[in-house]
Each structure stands twice: as structure tokens, then as C-alpha cells.
Design a protein around this nucleic acid. Structure first.
Lengths: 149, 149
DNA sequence: TCATATAGTTCAGTCCGCTTAACTAAAAAG
DNA sequence: CTTTTTAGTTAAGCGGACTGAACTATATGA
């Protein structure tokens, strides 16, 4: 078996284990806040990719502009999002996470990743070192791929 | 900064990058099959955890037994699930993925993890070795945690 | 300047997931 | 053997996400 195939297998095995835990924590948290998954997803997107307009939300989630507008409206009403006029194009809106929105995303991240702290405690210092090195390699490679796209 | 904190940060940075990609691929694939996310999630659960009854689905997803029954009904109608009587308890049903269901899950997994193959190609052989070792450490630790729970 | 394209909103209507409540059937408990 | 608990189904109804269509307002281009 070649190294590359071995690599792929290890990566997938880990992803499977991770996905399971993370997904459950994620939807559970969204539910506990009273937000729907689509609503929560929009907050996450905004957190990761920064401000954008309605049309970009519509593209990112592959929904109509009408749907995006309606979802955003609810998030604005709930105080998680600020919707301002884009100074460079008065038709467009600039959506940004409010402080309340940022806090929510932060909280959700904590919730979702809490089990990783438990996992950390199961590893020896030496194991942790190896893992850190490897994850940094992966993260960097992922970023390179994103940039090139 | 202690090693443990460093570890946690690396893990989270990687998870963030990973979650983004994986989630999008996942919901995109579910949509393309005509299945809703809840429906697709049930197939995934069944694939990972094996056969179970309605009540277990209801517990796993934190929904009422009625909701579980209705979702399962649709999946049975669509041919993704087999619903048989449990021989050891004639009240209960045994839900199992059909061949069609297995194939779908397989396909979805491929779809979701395709980008990882691209990622693989960005790494040197030496880097891949390091990553494999680290991921195996993590996967094993995660399994240990699952077992103890 | 007039025509067309783009950003977003609003509305009516559909579909889906979910819940509660009422029900059937089988198992467990007394 | 009767009572109670458990597994699942069905039906009515609510609420949210989504779409297409009609509309306003701004930008772009001939």
C-alpha cells in the first residue's frame, strides 16, 4: 500500500470520528439558542468570511435572494446581525455580525469543541507534540488550497 | 504557553477549516439527492451505528417517536431503508440500510472527502508520514473515549 | 438620456419537519 | 389474568424555509 493511500485512510478515519461528535454538538447548540440551522449557518459564514451582502449569502447557501433576505431579517430582528447600507453601492446592504452574534458563534464553537479538551487529556506530551506538528501542516495546506481557488 | 494549550489551538484551527468544507459538501450532496438533511442524517447514523428501532432514532436525534416514524416512512418509501419486524420483540421494528441506502452514503462520503485527496497531493511524502502518525493517535484516543462513555 | 441590469424586499403559497393526542398491538409486572 | 408499560403508527395542525412573481431603487451602458 502506498503512502498516499495510507494517508487518505487515516484522514478519513479521523474525519468520520470527528464529524460525528461535532455535528451533534453543533445542531444541539443551535437548537438550544432557538435558532434554526440555516440561521445559525449564516452567522457562522459571516464569522468566517466576513461582511457581505444579501446576494452573496444567497449564493453561498444556494438559496434564492428572497429566502436570504427573509433569513437575514430574522437575524437582524433578533439582534445577531447588523444590516447597513453599502456606501459604495446604495442598492446593496452590508451584513456584519453584531457583538451579540460574535458572542453566540464563540459560545457555539466552545460547545462543539469541548470534547477535544477531554481528548487532549488522554494524550501524552510527546503525542501532543506530534499531533500539533501534523495539524499545522494540514491547516497550512488547506489554507493554500483556499487561497488558490 | 503550555504544550496542552498549543495542542488545543492547533486542533481547533484544523477543525474549523475542515468543518467548513465538509459541511458544505454534505448539505450540497443531500440536496442533490432530493433528501432533506434530517433524512440524510438518519441514513448516516444507521450506516455508522448499525440497525436499530424507531425509538432509538427518536432518541439519537432528540425528536418525538412520531417524527422519527414519519421520517423513516419516507426513507422506506424511497427505498433507502428496510423496515422489518424485530423477531425478539414483535412491537419493535428493525431498521437497516438497503443496498441503495448504503450506496448513497458511500457516494456522499466520497463527495465530502474529495477535497482531502487534493490536500493530500499538496504534501510531501515526509509530511504525509507525520500526519498519518498523528491522525492515528487522535483516532485511537477518540475511540477510547467513546468506549468509556 | 433612455434602456437594461442588479440588489434587495414583500407577498402568496407550498412543502416539510415537528409536536401533541388518540390509537393498536405486544411485552412485562403485579 | 389483569394492569401497566413500551414500540410504533396515524392524523391534525403549527411554524419555518423556500420559491416565483411583482415591485422599488440604484447602477451601468448604449
Amino acid at each position: 500500500m502506498t503512502n498516499t493511500i495510507l494517508f487518505s485512510q487515516s484522514l478519513r478515519a479521523w474525519m468520520d470520528a470527528f464529524m460525528h461528535r461535532s455535528m451533534r454538538g453543533w445542531s444541539h447548540f443551535a437548537k438550544s439558542t432557538g435558532l434554526s440551522m440555516p440561521q445559525f449557518s449564516i452567522l457562522m459564514q459571516l464569522h468566517h468570511k466576513g461582511s457581505c451582502g444579501i446576494s452573496e449569502v444567497s449564493e453561498r447557501f444556494d438559496i434564492s435572494a428572497a429566502a436570504a433576505s427573509q433569513l437575514v431579517e430574522k437575524l437582524v430582528q433578533a439582534g445577531y446581525l447588523d444590516r447597513a447600507e453599502d456606501p459604495s453601492d446604495r442598492r446593496a446592504k452590508l451584513l456584519t455580525l453584531s457583538a451579540k452574534g460574535e458572542e453566540l458563534v464563540q459560545q457555539g464553537t466552545e460547545e462543539r469543541y469541548r470534547w477535544m479538551d477531554d481528548l487532549t487529556s488522554k494524550l501524552s506530551v510527546e503525542e501532543q507534540k506530534k499531533v500539533v506538528e501534523a495539524l499545522n501542516i494540514l491547516t497550512k495546506a488547506a489554507q493554500t488550497m483556499d487561497a488558490k481557488k
